[in-house]
Amino acid sequence: MADTTTKAKLRWGLLDVIVVVFALIPVLWIASLSFKTPATLTDGKFIPREWTLDNYRTIFQTDQFVRALVNSIGIALIATLVAVVLGAMAAYAISRLDFPGKRLLVGVSLLIAMFPQVSLVSPLFEIERQLGLFDTWPGLILPYITFALPLAIYTLSAFFKQIPWDLEKAAKMDGATQGQAFRRVIAPLAAPGLFTTAILVFIFCWNDFLFAITLTSTERARTVPVALSFFTGESQFEDPTGAICAAAVVITIPIILFVLFFQRRIVSGLTSGAVKG
C-alpha cells in the first residue's frame, strides 16, 4: 500500500512539474532574452552567454515606457477599485434582496461579459471622441469597469451567499444600521472574495490591449501593453526585441506583487465558528 502511495505521489509530482514548466517556459525565455545583448539575441541559447542590463536601461531611459507604466498602474488601480466597490454593492443586493428584475439584471450583466469586445471598439471610439473622452484616463477606465463589473458581481455574489444571513440580522438586532451591518460585519467576512475579485479585475485591466490601442493615441493615456507595440529600435531597421522583452519582464512584476500581496489576505475558512456547533 505504501508503495502505491509513493508511486502515486511521484506520478502526481512529475505531472505538476511538467505543467509548471510548460507554463513557465515562455516566461523564462522572455526573461532570458531580456538579458542578452543584441549580438547574441538569436543564438538560440537558453542561458545568455553575455549578460547585460542594457535593455532595462534603454526602456527606463525612454520617457515613453515610464509614462505608459504610470498610466497602466493608475488606470488599472482606479478601475479595480471602482469595479470592486460597485460590484460589491450590486452583488450584495443580488445575493440578499428580492427585487423585481433581479434575474434580468443578472442575465444582462452576463450578456455584457459574453459580448465580443472587438465589436464594441468602433462604436466606443466614436462615442469617446464625441464626448472628449478619447485618449484620456477615464476613456479607458470606463470601459474597463464595464467589462470587469459582471465578473466582479459574479464572483462576489458567490462569496456573499456563503455568509450566513443570520449575521446580518444579528447585527441589526445589536443596533446596527444597514450600512453599519455591511461595513462592520459583512464586508470583513467577504474580504477574501473582495481580494480575489480585485486580483481578477486588476489582471484584466492590466493585460488589456484591445481597448488600450483603439481608445488612445498619445502618451497621455497609453498603457504598457500598447506602448510595447510602439517600441522602436535606435534606427528604423533595428528590431527592439531585447527592449520589448525587458519591458515585458518589468510589467509582470507589479502584477506578481499585487497577487502576492492580496493572496495573503485570502484566508479560507474565515466564517468558521459563526453559526452552529
Binding site: 450566513p164 443570520d166 449575521l167 440580522k169 444579528a170 447585527a171 441589526k172 438586532m173 445589536d174 443596533g175 446596527a176 444600521t177 462592520r184 460585519v185 470583513p188 467576512l189 474565515l270 466564517t271 468558521s272 465558528g273 459563526a274 453559526v275 452552529k276 456547533g277
Partner: peptide, 27 residues
Amino acid sequence: PRDRDIAMVFQSYALYPNMTVRENMAF
C-alpha cells in the same frame, strides 16, 4: 430593529467570526 431596544438569540448563534468573544459581546 435597532430602535426597538430588544435583543435576540439566534438558533445558529450568529456570532461574528472575525471578532473575539469580548468584541462580540461589546458590539
